[in-house]
Design a protein around this nucleic acid. Sequence first.
DNA 1: TTTGACTTTTACGTCAAGGTCAACGATAGT
DNA 2: ACTATCGTTGACCTTGACGTAAAAGTCAAA
Lengths: 128, 128
Amino acid sequence: MNKYYSITELTREFGISTRTLRFYEDEGLIHPERRGRTRLFRPADRRLIQEILRGRRIGFTIAEIREIIQVYKDPPGEMGQLQLLMSRVEEKREELRQKRKDIEDTLAELDNVEEACLTRLAEIGVGT
Amino acid sequence: MNKYYSITELTREFGISTRTLRFYEDEGLIHPERRGRTRLFRPADRRLIQEILRGRRIGFTIAEIREIIQVYKDPPGEMGQLQLLMSRVEEKREELRQKRKDIEDTLAELDNVEEACLTRLAEIGVGT
DNA sequence: TTTGACTTTTACGTCAAGGTCAACGATAGT
DNA sequence: ACTATCGTTGACCTTGACGTAAAAGTCAAA
């Protein structure tokens, strides 16, 4: 079987444009197969796209995403490279932890905003 | 007392450029005082800048940040507006929850990468 | 066979968020 | 008086991440 997805199938599933997927291919993030000129996406491509979009949502640039994909595709064998990678990973983690905290603080604030809205609505509702 | 901060003082504290702060003023996010032409930032401005940067870190656009500031400065009094605001708030929360999940998944993955690195380093270390 | 839906490449356009550069004013130290 | 440091405005430049339009190929249904 090994099903293939068409490009529009994926754009619909993920709510992105064909331009975006072609752009990701140009940028070397994905490498769908071809039948003639048309792209054929396999489940593995689809999963990779999901991860790319996740990276995008948390604010990674294309370059960062490409770097991450690279590491998965061929992890460094040399010691210096490994240590470099680990320190880069630690940086990223610190960045993500900060972001998570920012999000939690903001979520808490939004709770307050909502509550203030409800209070205000109640006041208005009583008045009318 | 009511201390004033100079522009460079703040750029150093927050690791941003003067251009960025002037840009934020142009965009109507902040309104520092003036003595002649030079900007004087008060503690309240400083705190606002912190919140702007937090918004930036979690991927809010300038327009979104401006909108949020607006709501704080003058919350809507009319009922329709309040309901609109609440639904917008709910949207944002959903977005942030998704982002938080993305971050947590990615943090977990980075844990794996780190572990793989350590394992590999141990293998190499033993060999030498 | 014509319509419609899908696909392709190439290429220029756009938008946000600043960067960079020029030209200048105020103030303080030597 | 000269230099450094810090401030200003204004204008154009850059970068990332696509959008959009042109021109054309493929394939199935009516």
